[in-house]
Design a protein around this nucleic acid. Structure first.
Lengths: 204, 204
DNA sequence: GATGTAACTTACATTTATGTAGATATCGTC
DNA sequence: GACGATATCTACATAAATGTAAGTTACATC
């Protein structure tokens, strides 16, 4: 009886991945662990066990445990910025549908674990990992300003207010929204509805 | 030359605290560590070093490291609920001043570290520590409903929306507000101003 | 001043995460 | 099929966090 793995006779076999695949598998596993069990669960051993390699192998690919964490943060930040970009496209093609934009941003924080990741980064104090987000946020603001260019002098101020509003709220919702809604006996998308209703206040 | 401590001739002396004082000092130190250096910095050794006792002594008082963490969470949750109670009193004495209520709630999450604590709890999955908050939130909702009793059928729905709104936003602001405002070149109280402006939308 | 309780310490054991060194196996290439 | 690069593993080392046991000391009470 083989403990686990590809099979009885393959128990002594190694699976040799190309480095890029090995890194991708490891990062996917690390993200899963972060989302389901929290930051402390993302250890070399836990990730290695999930994808069937030793912890030493992960050090080989990422240099160190900190290297793995950095790569994970980088990967999740990239996904978040991609989602924000998609949200802007969404807004451009249909400026009058705030709920679609809200869903895009909320999903970015909720699924993919960007909210939990941001909380982890903030709690750990590794703020340098948030730097890539700065450029993405700048782009987001510029894009929205362009879409609402005719609004006059206060456009930039209103847009930054709107971005601050939706980002903080989506973050909070992703991290503690579920238990809080449970305490208040509110439906799952209560937060999204509120934001979608208030967002036009900023932009129009 | 004494390394550190109360003084040269007191180097061999022990300081014997009454248990309540020992616990209070330890919890204050643990909170400081949590706020300044993140959850992983709250270890028995770190807390012990700060208040001048050994890690074994902390185990003596709290039973285990988990016991210390639970006590810390309990203490911070109590402070948060106290602050929420004060916010309700504030609202009762002056129902027309949203900014005062907003400041009270934001300070509860910001100072005292309730926001960081909640993030830690949510990330770790120790949701049972949030149970005391449930009762506090219920009280808060009831108190606000009472204050605005004349508003008719939808009062409860509107109030829960308002509480969800301000709590999620204050939480988000406490955890990632600072870096996000920096990215957007916005002033420190930008978040509070936005919430104070929008809050009447729910209640009136 | 003697005594008992318990706060506190020291010393040791265990577990877990991380890191290093060297051996081994896999796969592309000749 | 031999060979070289390297992905992967085994084995060992280290550090930190937690926990346990037993001894010490401070302080209240008599």
């Amino acid at each position: 009886m083989s403990i686990d793995g590809p099979g009885p006779e393959a128990a002594t076999k190694r699976r040799r991945r190309v480095p890029e695949v090995a890194r991708r598998e490891a990062l996917a596993s690390a993200r899963r662990l972060l989302i389901t069990s929290g930051p402390t669960a993302v250890t070399l051993k836990a990730v290695g066990d999930e994808i069937g390699v030793t912890h030493a192998n992960l050090i080989h690919h990422f240099g160190s445990a900190a290297g793995l964490q950095s790569a994970l943060m980088e990967s999740m930040v990239r996904d978040l910025t991609d989602a924000l970009g998609a949200a802007v496209e969404q807004l451009r093609s249909n400026p009058g549908a705030p709920r679609a934009l809200v869903d895009a941003v909320f999903d970015a924080f909720d699924q993919g674990g960007a909210g939990r990741l941001a909380a982890w980064i903030a709690l750990s104090g590794d703020l340098q990992h948030l730097e890539p987000v700065r450029a993405a946020v700048r782009d987001l603001v510029d894009a929205i300003c362009e879409t609402f260019a005719a609004e006059g002098e206060q456009t930039h101020h209103r847009v930054t207010s709107a971005v601050l509003f939706i980002a903080l709220y989506a973050f909070g919702d992703a991290v503690i929204g579920a238990p809080l809604r449970d305490m208040l006996d509110r439906e799952d998308d209560a937060g999204r509805k509120i934001v979608a209703r208030l967002l036009p206040t900023f932009l129009f």
